[in-house]
Computed example of a mutant assay.
Amino acid sequence: VNGLLLQSMQPVLILLLGAAVFREQVGLPQLAGIVLSISGALMIILGGNLSALVRFEFNSGDLVICVAVVVWSIYSVLLRKRPAVHPLSFLAATFVVGIAMISPFYIAEIASGRLIENRPESWLAISYVSLFPSLIAYLFFNRGVELLGSTATSLYLNIMPVIGALLAAVFLMEPIGWYHFIGMGLIGAGIVSAARKSGQAIARTYNSGPGS
């Protein structure tokens, strides 16, 4: 829950970074979209009991999530400065940097004897993470930032609690509560509000020619 709460604040951080780095002018629709989206995410994450925020306790694991949120926000904002290369080439370069940074930790795990178990479940999990969250999700997110901008695209991250609740209902038979519907409505309204300005950006991108 703490991780989801911290991640729901990511659109605000991306908005602030965009304003600080690129002097972006944020309109009222975008501000309203962020407020609605975060409110909807909190409604789902906290099960409709927003007073639970008072009992929020910060622990060492949350610091890891905070670092990840900050790094991802910086990545999202700076995407507009990426070189004019093929999306797959840019993604390959990103993977090379990621492998270089994570290799020392992976080597340390191997040295400590914590090896991947050679079972079908392990390889299926690795295959899923490699294909969907890593390759496809990054390609789509990078393109989304190119078309919508980092602020509007970040609002879609708050759809994750919605998808999580729906998947839990389908596969784990968990009940859907009234707060899920309110949260979905707020998140949807937030995305629609922020998309007013972003729709013009998409039109400009497509009208600029095949090179876009």
Rank of each mutant, 00 (worst) to 15 (best):
L4Q: 13
L5F: 02
Q7A: 12
S8T: 03
L16V: 10
R23G: 04
G27L: 08
L28E: 09
P29K: 02
L31H: 10
A32E: 06
L36E: 03
I38P: 10
S39P: 04
S39N: 06
G47K: 11
E57H: 14
E57P: 00
S60C: 02
S60I: 09
G61K: 08
G61V: 04
L63P: 00
V67E: 06
A68K: 06
S73D: 00
I74H: 00
I74W: 00
Y75L: 00
V77T: 08
L78G: 02
K81G: 03
P83L: 07
P87G: 02
L91A: 11
A92F: 15
V96N: 09
G98L: 01
A100W: 12
M101T: 15
I102A: 14
A108K: 13
A108S: 13
E109F: 11
E109H: 12
S112Q: 13
R114H: 15
L115N: 09
R119P: 05
P120Q: 04
S122H: 10
W123N: 03
W123H: 07
L124Q: 12
A125S: 15
S127Y: 01
S127E: 01
S127R: 05
V129R: 05
S130P: 05
F132R: 08
S134R: 06
I136F: 13
I136A: 12
A137W: 09
A137D: 07
V145S: 07
E146Q: 14
T151Q: 14
T153W: 06
T153A: 14
L157R: 02
P161D: 03
P161C: 06
L166M: 15
A168Y: 05
M173G: 07
E174F: 02
W178A: 13
Y179K: 01
H180Q: 08
G183L: 07
G185T: 11
G188K: 03
G188C: 07
V192D: 03
K197R: 10
Q200N: 02
A203E: 11
A203I: 06
A203Y: 02
G209S: 00
P210W: 09
